[in-house]
Design a protein around this nucleic acid. Structure first.
Lengths: 159, 159
DNA sequence: AACGCTAATGATAATCATTATCATTAAAAT
DNA sequence: ATTTTAATGATAATGATTATCATTAGCGTT
């Protein structure tokens, strides 16, 4: 249990350290806003939208601007610190990225919820498929749309 | 060769027939606009945007409205006749759907072009993954972002 | 500690694909 | 031919994101 706590703490420190490294390597500045945004993402629930993060930060920092939140989420994405989850026309969601965080999504077209799944085999096959095309893979996105077990049980119409 | 031509023609007929069936089964009307939109999609190149289709139709039907094209593309999608390709923040693209038309995309982040690929194994693994979650799959979308062989050869910076 | 440079911020306007509105037109059933 | 109402076309509205720009504030230098 202690091990887990230590490892989580180490991750958090690593995230901040990487971000600072990223900023200074590009001549960007460390600001109060950037600090609170990163901290909020570290402690928050998964996959939040820009305005959810904005609202949370507002409580403690009434002067922070929405544009600043959006801008810095994009920056954190560019820095490889967070993932961007774009599903259909929904608002973009963000979540902390870590070694084991990659996952695909099963998206229920009835209730809108999404389940995270992962398959090492699928990842490998994707790489193989790309290799055949001499294509260098940077990232990927797999979304499976359908009806989740709860909506399926309740029975009902197609959407 | 004749076989191929016949099969293509049969497909086109089947598409129109299915669409008419879809319309009448829902008390929707067959209109001139719907006819020309379907015909344009059948004869056009792959994955066109709504405004590309609009522009093509404009030449022969100067009175057709953009909203009508958008509305009916959505309708054709609901009818299961065409596929909707949404990549990032790009405009939505549409293309005729057929038994063998499903494919995933390798998307080059440098030149923006996309390559269509397909893996039966990946499809199977996806179904298996969904089955474990008691999730009924309706459709899916796999996008692999990276650098294509042409952009890779030319060497150069990351994006 | 003050200065200067300029990145970053915050408020707001702009963007842009898509959707809604609504008066008019035209399918299709009677 | 008439009636009903779905569909159309022009345009306004939507809404998330991005750009603009005057002001603020990091941060290296003096």
């Amino acid at each position: 249990m202690i091990m887990i706590i230590i490892s989580v703490m180490a991750d958090k420190e690593a995230i901040s350290k990487n971000f600072k490294k990223y900023l200074s390597s590009r001549g960007l500045r460390r600001t109060l806003q950037r600090d609170v945004i990163v901290r909020e993402i570290i402690k928050s629930a998964k996959h939040l939208t820009a305005d959810e993060i904005f609202e949370r930060l507002r409580k403690k920092n009434p002067n922070i601007g929405y544009a600043t939140v959006c801008r810095n989420l994009k920056l954190l994405y560019s820095a490889g610190i967070i993932d961007e989850i774009k599903i259909g026309n929904q608002k973009t969601r963000y979540e902390l990225k870590s070694e084991d965080s990659h996952h695909d999504h099963l998206i229920c077209v009835k209730c809108g919820k999404f389940i995270e799944v992962f398959s090492e085999k699928i990842e490998e096959l994707q790489k193989e498929m790309a290799r055949k095309e001499r294509f260098i893979v940077l990232r990927h996105k797999l979304e499976i749309y359908g009806i989740c077990k709860y909506c399926g049980e309740k029975g009902g119409e197609r959407s």
